Simulated scan of single mutants.
Amino acid sequence: MPRKESLQNLRATLVRRRDALRKALAGDLSLLSELHQQKTGDALDAAADTVQDELNSQLVEVESKELVAIEEAIAKFQQGTYGDCEDCGKPIPLNRLRAIPYASDCIECRRKAENDVDGASPAVPWNRIFDMTEADTIEG
Rank of each mutant, 00 (worst) to 15 (best):
V62C: 10
R98G: 11
R96I: 03
E66F: 05
L7R: 02
E61W: 07
K76W: 05
A20Y: 14
C109H: 00
D84F: 01
V60E: 14
R111C: 04
D87W: 02
D49Y: 03
M132S: 09
R128K: 12
N115K: 13
E34G: 12
R111W: 07
G140Y: 11
H36T: 09
S57T: 11
I100T: 15
R17F: 03
A26D: 15
S30M: 14
T81F: 01
D118C: 06
K90A: 03
V117W: 10
I92T: 01
I107V: 10
R16H: 06
E139P: 05
L59M: 14
T81D: 02
E72P: 04
A43K: 04
D45Q: 13
L55R: 07
P93H: 01
F130N: 12
V51P: 02
G119S: 02
L31W: 13
Q37K: 12
N127E: 13
T133S: 14
Q79T: 07
E54F: 15
S6F: 08
E139I: 11
R110W: 01
C85F: 01
S57K: 07
E114K: 02
D136T: 06
D116N: 15
A99K: 14
A113R: 06
I107L: 07
A73K: 04
S33R: 14
L55A: 13
I70K: 14
C88P: 00
E54D: 09
R111Q: 15
K76G: 08
I138E: 12
H36L: 15
I92H: 00
C109I: 00
Q79P: 09
C88N: 01
A24E: 15
G83W: 01
T137E: 12
A12V: 07
D42R: 10
S104H: 04
A48D: 14
T40N: 09
N127Q: 13
N56G: 15
N127S: 15
D53A: 15
R16L: 13
A75K: 09
E114S: 06
E61K: 13
A120I: 03
V51T: 11
P125A: 03
P125K: 06
M1V: 13
I74G: 05
L97E: 03
R16P: 04
D105S: 00
K65F: 08
Q79E: 15
Q37C: 05
V62K: 15
T81C: 02
P125S: 02
C109T: 00
L10A: 07
R110P: 02
L44C: 04
D118W: 09
A12E: 08
L10Y: 06
I129S: 14
C106G: 00
P2A: 10
N56Q: 14
K39C: 08
D118R: 08
Q79W: 06
W126Y: 13
I107K: 02
M132A: 08
L97N: 03
C109V: 00
A120Y: 04
E139W: 09
L29S: 11
A20C: 06
L29G: 08
E34H: 10
A123I: 14
I74N: 05
P101E: 03
D136M: 06
F77K: 05
D105A: 00
V62Q: 14
C88F: 00
L29K: 04
D28R: 09
A113F: 02
R18I: 01
